[in-house]
Design a protein around this nucleic acid. Sequence first.
RNA 1: GGGCGAAUGGCGGAAUUGGUAGACGCUCAACUCUUAAAAAGUUGUGAUUGCAAGAUCGUGAGGGUUCGAGUCCCUCUUCGCCCACCA
Length: 873
Amino acid sequence: MNRIKMSIILSNNVVLHCENKEKNENNLFCSVVVHCKKIIEFFYATIPQVMAYDHQTASKKWSKMWQDHAVYEPNLSTAKKPYYNLMMFPYPSAEGLHVGNMYAFSGADIYGRYQRMLGHDVFEPIGLDGFGIHSENYAIKIGKHPAEQAKVSEKNFYRQLSTIGNGFAWNERLETYDPEYYKWTQWLFVQMFKHGLAYKASSQVNWCPSCKTVLADEQVEDGKCERCKSEVERKEAKQWFFKITDYADRLLTNIEGLKWPEKIRIAQRQWIGKKAGINIVYQVVGSTATIICFTTKPVNFGATFLVLAPEHELVRNIIDEIIKVPKKNLEQVKKYTQEALNKSDQQRKIEEKKKTGVFTGLYVLNHVTKKEIPVWISDFVLGTVGTGAVQGCPGHDERDFEFAKKFEIPIPRVVIGKDGFDGAITSLKQVVTDGGTMVNSEFLDGMEFHDAMEKTMDYFEEHGWGKRVISYHLRDWLISRQRFWGPPIPMVECKKCGWQAVPEDQLSVELPFIQDYKPTGDGKSPLEKAPKTWLYTACPTCGAKAKRETDVSDTFLDSSWYFLRYPSLFAASAATQPFDPAITKKWLPVTTYIGGAEHAVLHLLYSRFVTMALKDWGYLEFEEPFPFLFGHGLIIKDGSKMSKSKGNVVNPDEYIEKFGVDTLRTYLMFLGPYNQGGDFRDTGIAGMERWMQKVWRLFHEKLVTGSQKTSPKLQTKLHKTIKKCTTDMADFKYNTCIAAMMECTNLWLSEGEMMGKDDALKFLCLLAPFAPYMTEELYQTLFQPKTTPFSSIHTLHWPAYEESLTLDDMVEIAIQINGKFRGKMAVQSSDAKDKALLEHNAQKEEKIARILSTMSIKNIIVVPGKLVNIVCA
RNA sequence: GGGCGAAUGGCGGAAUUGGUAGACGCUCAACUCUUAAAAAGUUGUGAUUGCAAGAUCGUGAGGGUUCGAGUCCCUCUUCGCCCACCA
């Protein structure tokens, strides 16, 4: 935009700003000179001069005042009505905060400010989830050391966060890479180990052959490396796990009591994935070996083969020739297994349509048909799901059908579906997977499908062939990362004593500085290159030389407990305990947790698990950290979610500088309901700026003084607005609150309407959570005598409305004929509920009477205060 | 394939939960002020039709319930998000 600004400074410090869109200074200058006389007259002689709201000065001034007077720092040990208003922990991407992030913070802050005005002691801390792969990758990308980059990102992120107008408790900030913090993350790991919830076991990890590094699951997109797009492979490695599965049932049942968005509750239920089924034991013919298959639908009369995952223990035994199979089969098994294991789960899923597999040469006995059925290996069976082995019932499972068809295995029918078709099953569409009637199943024949499944399970249990089990989709939490930028896992391995936790008084195990921190490519952790003085230490048990664990822990561990640390950061016990019991009792669980739905099954599940464990160990008195969670929507720009990868991020800095943060915040909240997000556009912001200036002018030009009162119409509108805002704020419906305030100002602006000072302050309070700086400026300059000590508008009480004052004198009643709107009439509001009167008056309305003259009335329906519907023949 | 949600003017979105559809804002147009512009203000802005009063149509499509449906029920279409060879 080619806009030229010119300022004229008049004698009494009045600054006049002139602007011109055209890049023509002469033109502008001439126009200023021409108008100089008039301008001066205007300032000196006419209306009291109004300065435009200068958001830059105001935001600096009030930020400082708020901090100096600890407006947002409740006394954490003495607060009477604690309210923990928390927004999800941000990770400080080096590119900085974008408008999508700001949307989340602003919306949460508005809620906090509203709660503060309702009389709560609101605590709204902020910190940085700065450890982890995101930050490390960025450091790699720009060729900096993560520790160095962290300082830069921290500074930039805190700077941005300080400009968005949030009432953060800045004193209590924390960063996950601060040793004072991760000391306790490590303590948490040690507790997990001590309570038997941490163990080390062999597992597959994602491996990018091009970047020569191990990747986290989050870095694998569609089976490809997020950075270089090459196919991710699998590698076997020993990893640390947390036994979150021990808590699966509790995590599931507790969901019922959580006040969370239904969407997120469903996502968690689905993720935990509780399934009731049966583990069936198959005896390998001619061997002592057994194979256990999990199934929820034991259609066993139709089972004609078994399939093992390539990772299955028995497969290894075949390869190692512990179990003997024909030579020809052995060669095929070796070849197939090797190929399959090199693929990732993702890759295997992508190739799902083309079923592949190999026969082992082994057979097992089908308990009910008494037939020997072949055992195959196929990568459509995943080692990590169920028991890693399935029984193939091709007539009644689509995947089994595809497999059997390809390898010419018999496909018997044992269920007739709802369509009644009972012929041979030759196409995928004929496969009956759920419901129907049993056939060819001896004692089950004629039974309903689900009853038959239950009966089969009973039958198998009675014969000792199987046992009912509950299976979960949830797997143990893989904690290890072969990366650098995280808290070292606080374990040491002694040749004699095995794995030992680092004694608590020796925490933290500080992350050593190593220059070459990049992932090595051979599967070893970067910390293997740490100085020997760090790498080797004394075994806590026997004192012999022992080696430290060189893996670091997952970022999600850092963020799984941070909310416990905030209130206790400055407690007397902060150095000796992760969180203070008394303060924790006062402030937790978190009163309102606000964040995006993208963490539905990661952060939110891990935090719940950690909280439950801490409760069981006696550190906490509650087991759900976030009883109330609100999920905000996403900001859309150019048709898609604002994100760095889409390249459509908008940096709030320039908008804040140009329009002021009050305008930007209010604009963002006006886009749509807070849980739905909205579409970001520049033209809309300009509209919001107009309104802000309008409010500013109204307060300077249309306030009555002394004993004069607000005009009656405006007073009704004001009370309606307060009512509307009060209910909508509680529901996070910020957009309609703002619309209501706009309606109020539109009326206020119209001729003859004036607002009294008391009423105007009420209005200002409604706006305060949205526009914290401008409302403070207006409050301090127009409502607070200069001599009184500073007291912020944000500590005032939320205004009350009087129901009687929300009612208009006259009410409009709609008149319908046969349900069609035909006119309206005005009645005294006191008469609005008089059915007979409404019925009578409606027919008397000239236009209505005219239409009715040609019709005969059958019925009249009156909705008091709303409408009259005349039903005619 | 499964689950969840959505569909309303040129656009973002309102609609007291079955009761005057389109609040509020953006956009656009005309006007006022101005030498001119900017800013600000006023008026208008779902479609068709009419000089006008008005009339007719109108909430993704089709049916139904009702005095009355954007809202409830059934069928279908499209889009978005999440999960997914889950045995």
